[in-house]
């Protein structure tokens, strides 16, 4: 599903003439198979979020290549990557990233609108996925009227609604309490088993990391460990 080859990335800070280069990722390579849950762990500033942003196409790598679903996404332009993201990737963010002026239903409906689907098809798909995350009663609620766990479920529903083969999650439980966190992890696991969706989860939480089939550990921009998780949840 994902092939990362010799990926390097650096940021340039400061003004012209007085620039400082910070190397975030250094020649990283790994492979994620279809239907796998892979967690990427590492300390703050280790480069794990940068890795996710590179795979998502939010930033472009300094060097190296990334293949997603057999397409070399590092060659895509912005418009092509946007279309690819819409159809092939779902996102779960730490801070949910729901549009506050839209109801839960409208937030879930948004990818379907961007995909040009008809109103009836949208309604059917959005309701189905809201039901799947257990929020069919909360469709007309605005994000501010929902709890953190519920907001994250809406965000998962939005990620699932176009049935992408890959979901990228950045600290998905970062804003949740421990009960809600366990509930959410079970749900991710369930989605993986039922729908065969591949998950790439960035986390610094060992409990979250334990749900994956494999765990990649990054330290100072280098993969220091790639281990199969025998004790997965």
């Amino acid at each position: 599903m994902i092939e990362v080859q010799n990926l390097s990335h650096h940021f340039e800070l400061g003004k012209k003439g007085n620039k400082t280069t910070i190397q975030v990722l250094k020649d990283i390579s790994f492979h994620i198979k279809n239907g796998e849950i892979v967690t990427v762990v590492g300390k703050s500033g280790s480069g794990k979020s940068t890795l996710l942003n590179l795979i998502s196409g939010f930033i472009h790598p300094t060097n190296g290549a990334i293949w997603v679903d057999e397409e070399k996404v590092t060659d895509f332009n912005e418009a092509k990557f946007a279309d690819f993201r819409l159809k092939k990737m779902g996102f779960i963010f730490q801070s949910f990233q729901l549009i506050p002026s839209m109801t839960a239903y409208q937030n879930v409906e948004l990818p379907l609108i961007l995909n040009g689907e008809s109103e009836s098809s949208r309604k059917q798909k959005a309701m189905k996925v809201l039901e799947k995350v257990g929020l069919s009663q909360f469709g007309e609620h605005y994000p501010s009227e929902l709890s953190g766990g519920q907001q994250q479920r809406v965000s998962i529903a939005r990620a699932l609604v176009l049935e992408p083969p890959l979901i990228l999650a950045d600290e998905p439980t970062g804003s949740l309490d421990s009960d809600t966190e366990s509930e959410l992890l079970q749900f991710i696991k369930q989605l993986n088993q039922e729908l065969g969706i591949t998950f790439l989860i960035i986390t610094h939480d060992e409990e979250v990391a334990s749900i994956g089939h494999r765990k990649i550990t990054i330290h100072d921009g280098i993969v220091i460990e790639e281990a199969v998780n025998d004790n997965e949840l």
């Binding site: 939010f58 418009a79 946007a82 993201r85 819409l86």
Partner: peptide, 15 residues
């Protein structure tokens, strides 16, 4: 912020 979210989930810049 809304535009950022839309772009993140796959809104085409042309749209």
């Amino acid at each position: 912020p809304d535009i950022g979210i839309m772009k993140a989930i796959g809104a085409n810049p042309k749209t």
